[in-house]
C-alpha cells in the first residue's frame, strides 16, 4: 500500500460521529437522544453542567429510580448521529433554567434534560455553527467523577446559595408572567398536485389519482392563474415557488380556491386540503 493511502487510513481511523443539532432562539445547542431505547428526547449540550440531567417526568416514565441524592442510572444513552454511552449516572431533576425555558416556550420544543460533563468528556467535540452536524470522536478516557462539595465548603457557600435561590424565584416569577400555552403544530394541508412552469405560467403537471385536487376536478394541463387562501384575497400566480409560498400556511381541512385556464376558458375549483399528505 502506498504510504499516502496508509496515512490517510491512519488519520481517519477513529469513528467520528456526526451529531445533528439545532440552535435554539436562546442560542442553546439542542441535541436529541434516546434513553434506554425510548425517545427521542431533547437535550441541551452543556459543558457547564456536571452530568447528564433528566427531567423527573421522563425518568419516571422510563422507570429510572433516583436515590436520595437525586442520582439515577441510565443504562443506555444514544445520541442522534451515533454516539452511545452505557451505564451513565444521571441527575434526575429539571434545573430551573429548563423549567423556565419550557414554560416560556422559548426553544419551540420541550426540553427534557441536559447533556453535561460525564457524557461530553468521553468525546472530542467539534462545534462549528456553520455546519449542520457536530463531530464527536470517542476518546479512550473515562472522566473522573465530579466531586461533591464538602460540608466545610458548604458553610462558605451560604451567600451564593441564597443568591441562587433568589435567582430561581425571580426566573419562576417571570416565567409565570409570560407563560405561553404550547403552540399547536400541524402538517401543511395536502392537495396532491405536481406543478411546473411553462412559458405561459404555472401548469398542473399531474393530479394524484384519489387525492384532494382530483376530487375537486382539477386536471393535468390546467394553467394556475390565481389562488385564494382561507380569509385572504385572491393572488395572481406567476411562478411555482410563489404558489408554494402562498399556500405555506394552509392547514388540513381548510379550503383553497384555485382559478385555472383550461382550453381558453377560466375554470374555478375549490379544494379541501387533506391531512397528513405530502
Amino acid at each position: 500500500m502506498p504510504l499516502f493511502l496508509l496515512l490517510v487510513h491512519l488519520v481517519s481511523a477513529g469513528p467520528v460521529w456526526h451529531v445533528p443539532y439545532r440552535l435554539a432562539a436562546t442560542n442553546h445547542i439542542l441535541l436529541r437522544a434516546k434513553l434506554n431505547g425510548s425517545g427521542p428526547y431533547n437535550f441541551i449540550m452543556d459543558t457547564g453542567a456536571p452530568a447528564l440531567f433528566v427531567a423527573e417526568d421522563v425518568a419516571k416514565k422510563l422507570g429510572i429510580k433516583p436515590n436520595a441524592q437525586h442520582w439515577g442510572v441510565v443504562n443506555r444513552l444514544e445520541v442522534e448521529g451515533g454516539p452511545v454511552v452505557e451505564k451513565i449516572g444521571a441527575r434526575v431533576e429539571g434545573p430551573f433554567q429548563l423549567q423556565t425555558m419550557n414554560q416560556l416556550a422559548l426553544t419551540g420544543v420541550q426540553i427534557h434534560g441536559v447533556i453535561g460533563y460525564n457524557v461530553l468528556a468521553r468525546f472530542r467535540i467539534e462545534i462549528d455553527a456553520t455546519r449542520p452536524t457536530l463531530a464527536w470522536t470517542p476518546l479512550a478516557f473515562v472522566p473522573p467523577a465530579p466531586v461533591n462539595i464538602t460540608s466545610a465548603e458548604k458553610k462558605r457557600l451560604a451567600q451564593p446559595v441564597k443568591d441562587q435561590k433568589q435567582m430561581e424565584a425571580m426566573a419562576k416569577m417571570a416565567a409565570a408572567m409570560f407563560a405561553k400555552k404550547p403552540v399547536e403544530v400541524v402538517p401543511r394541508g395536502f392537495l396532491g398536485i405536481e406543478i411546473g412552469e411553462t412559458a405561459d405560467g404555472v401548469v398542473v403537471r399531474s393530479v394524484l389519482p384519489g387525492g384532494p385536487a382530483a376530487a375537486s376536478g382539477l386536471k393535468s394541463g390546467d394553467m394556475v392563474t390565481s389562488v385564494t387562501s382561507p380569509g385572504k384575497a385572491a393572488v395572481s400566480i406567476r411562478s411555482s415557488v410563489f404558489l408554494l409560498e402562498q399556500l405555506r400556511g394552509l392547514a388540513p381541512d381548510e379550503q383553497v380556491a384555485v382559478d385555472v385556464r383550461r382550453g381558453g376558458e377560466t375554470r374555478h375549483f375549490s379544494i379541501t386540503a387533506g391531512r397528513g399528505g405530502l
Binding site: A105, V185, R188, G192, L247, G249
Partner: peptide
C-alpha cells in the same frame, strides 16, 4: 439572543404553526 428571546416573549398570538414540506412526495402518513 436578547432580541430573539424578546421576540419569542412578545409573540403571544401564535397558537398554531403549520409545517410545510418543500416538495411533493405523493403519500400520506399517520
Amino acid at each position: 439572543v436578547m432580541k430573539s428571546v424578546f421576540r419569542a416573549l412578545m409573540d403571544r398570538n401564535g397558537t398554531r404553526r403549520v409545517v410545510a414540506p418543500a416538495a411533493l412526495w405523493g403519500m400520506t402518513l399517520e
